[in-house]
């Protein structure tokens, strides 16, 4: 009888655990469009995590190894954001969509980073996103969407690229994060907030 009682208590405890885990995933305040407060987004840092100089090799040049092609130096860029959640419930940072602009006018890339980054209620978190452009991809931007602005400024493509590749790691060329969209979710609520910042 005693053994049975212990077993019964153990089973009830087990049920309790299973159901309590379901219950505790709910937050006391249910997120909705009207109680969702915009998180605070700040740029906490910018770095070029690996620098490989400025170079470009046209496809007419035979490489030592591998295949020839129009290839240029990579310029990786890491942006660190501090996100503060002022809400009384946790929020999930799901996506950061952003464009990188050099010299105030030349949008050299647009991309999106997807993630699942939960930020507890009232807390802050830091999120890093890394992207890169190459001399080749930046050249394509100058030749197509940037061509009108280049003509207006009277700038030349290759000297502009060299200035960027040397100046950005040293902090002498303006870099801007533009047309950003930070997507947050909580429960069934999805909110996207714009962001723009002069990085340097």
């Amino acid at each position: 009888m005693k053994k049975s009682l212990i077993l019964l208590i153990a089973l009830l405890f087990g049920f309790g655990l299973v159901f309590s885990s379901c219950v505790t995933t709910d937050t006391p305040v249910k997120p909705n469009n009207s109680n969702f407060v915009a998180p605070k987004i700040e740029l906490a840092g910018f770095e070029v995590p690996q620098y490989d100089g400025y170079w470009y090799i046209a496809k007419t040049v035979k490489p030592t190894k591998g295949e020839a092609g129009d290839r240029g130096a990579f310029l990786p860029m890491t942006f660190t954001f501090k996100i503060t959640n002022p809400n009384v419930y946790p929020i999930n940072l799901e996506e950061i969509k952003y464009s990188v602009v050099f010299d105030k006018s030349f949008m050299v890339m647009t991309t999106s980073d997807q993630m699942s980054n939960w930020i507890p209620a009232g807390m802050a978190d830091e999120v890093k996103v890394t992207t890169l452009v190459t001399v080749r991809s930046a050249l394509a931007c100058l030749l197509v969407p940037g061509s009108v602005e280049m003509k207006k400024r009277g700038w030349e493509n290759w000297s502009t690229l060299e200035k960027w590749w040397k100046g950005i790691p040293e902090g002498t060329v303006p870099v801007t994060l533009a047309e950003c969209g930070f997507t947050f979710t909580a429960g069934d609520v999805t909110m996207v907030y714009p962001y723009r910042v002069d990085v340097q």
Partner: peptide
Amino acid sequence: DTTGATSDVGKDYAI
């Protein structure tokens, strides 16, 4: 294509 030869139209399509 948000950075290549057709990014003049590709970026808006991607977004």
